[in-house]
Design a protein around this nucleic acid. Structure first.
Length: 154
DNA sequence: GCCAACGTTGGC
DNA sequence: GCCAACGTTGGC
């Protein structure tokens, strides 16, 4: 099983909304590198839910991949901000996954904290200039994040 | 195929 | 609101 991190601006889609929805289609990703990661996801993979562009950016919770290789429907919808006129149903360009809500952490694991803890490690989030909205998280790092939340989240 | 211009992301 | 980093576009 693999671990991932997905970013969302809470004003656009928050962990609270995710909790209410129970499942969500991770649509609107229009970056090839991010799409490739979405396509690499397998059933049961865990995804850290990250709030970006907010007062305290950081990991706020956890989701699980519940459906893979989903064709992002927004690419065909001219009304959608994610409409892509160059994509066609015959050869769709953008794929995504469905996520099911797992939990919200007791407190935000802030970007500042993550940078400090995983400085220099193989974790795209803490590297300079990274703007990817979907990225892999090495298992060792994922385990550390999960473990510290199990202890502090009680 | 190069690269300048432009747009977007996202931390601060 | 600023701006660095980076992706994309389009002229040539």
């Amino acid at each position: 099983m693999n671990y991932w991190l997905v970013k969302s601006e809470p004003l656009t889609y928050s962990i609270e909304q995710f909790k209410d929805d129970k499942t969500t289609l991770w649509d609107g990703v229009r970056n090839y590198q991010a799409r490739n990661f979405l396509q690499a996801m397998t059933l049961g993979d865990l995804a850290f839910f990250y709030h970006s562009n907010t007062k305290v950016p950081g990991i706020v919770g956890l989701g699980k991949v519940s459906q893979t290789q989903v064709i992002d429907p927004t690419q065909f919808n001219p009304q959608s901000p994610y409409f892509d006129p160059k994509s066609s149903p015959d050869s769709p360009r953008w794929f995504t996954v469905e996520l099911v809500y797992v939990k919200t952490f007791a407190q935000v694991i802030s970007l500042a904290q993550l940078k400090e803890q995983f400085k220099g490690e193989d974790f795209a989030l803490v590297k300079k200039g990274n703007r990817l909205s979907v990225m892999p998280v090495p298992e060792k790092i994922a385990q550390k994040i999960l473990t510290q939340k199990i202890f502090s989240g009680v």
